[in-house]
Design a protein around this nucleic acid. Structure first.
Length: 277
DNA sequence: AGTGTATCCTGCAGGC
DNA sequence: TGCCTGCAGGATACAC
C-alpha cells in the first residue's frame, strides 16, 4: 500500500480540512471496497459530523460522531478532497464518494480495489485496534519492546516486520529500507538478532518512517496525498527497487531476492547473511 | 508456527 | 503497433 508514512500524510491532510464538517450522503460506486452491505455503510455514516482524522498502522481513521470509518488503502487506494461539487479530475477510479453538507466531497479512489472501508461502532473499533501490533513511532515502542517481539518468532525478519499483528504500519518498502540502514539481511530469523542489531533496527525503522513522513511519503506510481501531490521520499530509497545498482554505502551491486511471495532487496556486502553451518 | 501458493483487480514496462 | 509476460505499496485463505 501506501504504508504508514503515506497513510499519515493523507490523514494529516484530511485533518486540516474535514473536522467539523458533516457527511450528507455516501455514494458507493464500487460495493466491493466496502465491508458489509453498501446501504448499511452509507446509513452508518450519513448525517454524522467528522470530529478528526487520524491513523492506525497503515489505515486512515475518520472519527465521526458514534462511528469510525477505517480506510485500508490496499495497494492503490487514495483519499482525495475537493472543495467544489464538480467531479475531481485527479480521481481516476472513484469507488466511494462522501458528499458533505457544505457541497464539498471526499473521494475514495482505488484502481485495483484491494482497499477496504469499514464503518465501526465503539465495540468493533476496540476489537479491531487491539488486533494490530504497536505503533512503531509510539512512545512505548522501545528497542526492548522490539526485542521481545523479535524473540518470539523464527520467521525471517522482513516477514515479521510486514505482519500487522506484531507491528502496525510497516510494509515492504520501509521494511527493506530499514533493514538496509541497519545492515541486516532480510532473511535473518528474527529471534537470532543480537541486542546490537535489534537496537540498530529499532533506530533505523523509526528514522526511515519519520524521514518518509517528512517527505510526504513515497510515490512509486499511484500514491498521492489528500491534495493530489506526490510523495518525495522515492529518491531517498537506498535499497528498494535498486537491484543491480551499486550500494550507496559500499558500491557492491544491490540484489533482489524473493521470499514470502515478495521481492526484497539487500546489499550482499553490507547485509551479510548468517554464516552457513 | 512457518512457508509457498493462489486470489482479489488493473495498469504499466519490457521483450519480441 | 500489438501481444505476451511479469511485476506492483496489501491482506487473506488454503494446504503442507
Amino acid at each position: 500500500m501506501p504504508e504508514l508514512p503515506e497513510a499519515e500524510t493523507i490523514a494529516r491532510g484530511l485533518d486540516l480540512v474535514l473536522p467539523g464538517r458533516t457527511v450528507r450522503s455516501v455514494e458507493v460506486l464500487r460495493p466491493d471496497v466496502v465491508r458489509g452491505p453498501p446501504d448499511e455503510f452509507a446509513g452508518a455514516v450519513s448525517g454524522r459530523r467528522i470530529r478528526d482524522v487520524g491513523r492506525r498502522g497503515k489505515n486512515i481513521v475518520l472519527s465521526l460522531d458514534l462511528v469510525r470509518v477505517v480506510v485500508n488503502l490496499g495497494m492503490t487506494g487514495r483519499v482525495l478532497t475537493s472543495a467544489g461539487a464538480h467531479p475531481d479530475a485527479r480521481s481516476t477510479h472513484p469507488a466511494v464518494v462522501f458528499h458533505l453538507e457544505d457541497g464539498g466531497r471526499a473521494t475514495y479512489d482505488d484502481v485495483r480495489r484491494f482497499g477496504m472501508l469499514s464503518a465501526l461502532g465503539p465495540r468493533a473499533w476496540r476489537r479491531w485496534t487491539r488486533s494490530l501490533g504497536p505503533e512503531p513511532l509510539g512512545r512505548t515502542f522501545t528497542a526492548a519492546r522490539l526485542g521481545e517481539i523479535l524473540a518470539a518468532s523464527r520467521a525471517p525478519i522482513r516477514s515479521l516486520l510486514l505482519d500487522q499483528r506484531r507491528i502496525a504500519g510497516v510494509g515492504n518498502i520501509y521494511a527493506v529500507e530499514a533493514l538496509w540502514a541497519a545492515r541486516i539481511d532480510p532473511r535473518t530469523p528474527a529471534r537470532l538478532l543480537d541486542p546490537a542489531r535489534v537496537a540498530r533496527l529499532h533506530r533505523a525503522l523509526r528514522r526511515v518512517l519519520r524521514s518518509a513522513i517528512a517527505a510526504g511519503g513515497t510515490t512509486l506510481r499511484n500514491y498521492r496525498d489528500a491534495s493530489g501531490e506526490e510523495g518525495r521520499f522515492g529518491r531517498a530509497l537506498r535499497a528498494y527497487g535498486r537491484s543491480g545498482e551499486p550500494c550507496v554505502r559500499c558500491r557492491a551491486p544491490v540484489e533482489r531476492i524473493v521470499f514470502g511471495g515478495r521481492s526484497a532487496f539487500r546489499c550482499p556486502r553490507c547485509q551479510p547473511g548468517l554464516p552457513a553451518r
